[in-house]
Amino acid sequence: MSELSDKELLELFRQKDRRHYAFDLLVRQYQERLYNYVRRMVTDHQDAEDVLQNVFIKAWRGLDKFREDAQLFSWLYRIAHNESITHLKRVKRGLFVDHEAVFERLTASLDHGEQFSGDAIERKLQRAVMRLPEKQRSVFTMKYFQEMKYHEISAITGTSIGALKSSYHIAVRKIEEHLTSDQTK
C-alpha cells in the first residue's frame, strides 16, 4: 500500500468514524523508523517496544492538538526522543545512578545472539555509543545512523545547530577513541 501524506493522514484522523483506521495507518507508516531510533537509544528490544508503545499512545492522545504547520514525523520523533531519554533516566534512577550498573543493564542484550547479530567491531561501536551521555547519544544516533540533517535534529531536540555540531563532533571523537583502544567493554 502506498504511503499517505501527513495531510491525508490527519484529514482521515479527524473523521470520527475513521480515526482508528487512520491511526493504524500512521503507526504502520512510522513505526520502523521510530523503532530504529529508539532501539539504538535503549538497545534492548523489550525496552524499545515499551518506549515505542508509549510514543504512539501519547501521539494518539495529542494528535487532535497537533498543528499542521509542524511536520508529523518531526513531532513523532520528538516524542520518541523524549520518551527514550525518560526511559534512560528511569533506568538510572532504578540503579541509583551507578554508571557501570546502568551501562551493564543497557548493553546486556548485545551479548545475546537473539538480540544482536553484529560482529565484534559493531558490538564495540554500540558499546561506545552507550557510553555517551544521553543527549550526545541521541544526536549521534540521529546524525550518524539515521543521516538526518542538523536542522531536522534541531527541530526535534530544540537545540541550536551550533550546539548540535559541537555535540556530534565530541561524540565522534569519543567513539573513535573507544574503537581504537584495547577496551573490550
Binding site: D24, H45, F56, W60, E114, F116, G118, R123
Partner: peptide, 19 residues
Amino acid sequence: RDPFVVPERFFSRFPLSVK
C-alpha cells in the same frame, strides 16, 4: 547495516498491540 535483531512479524503485530 543494522545489527539489531527484531522478532519475526514484530512490525505486523505492533500496531495491534498499540491499539
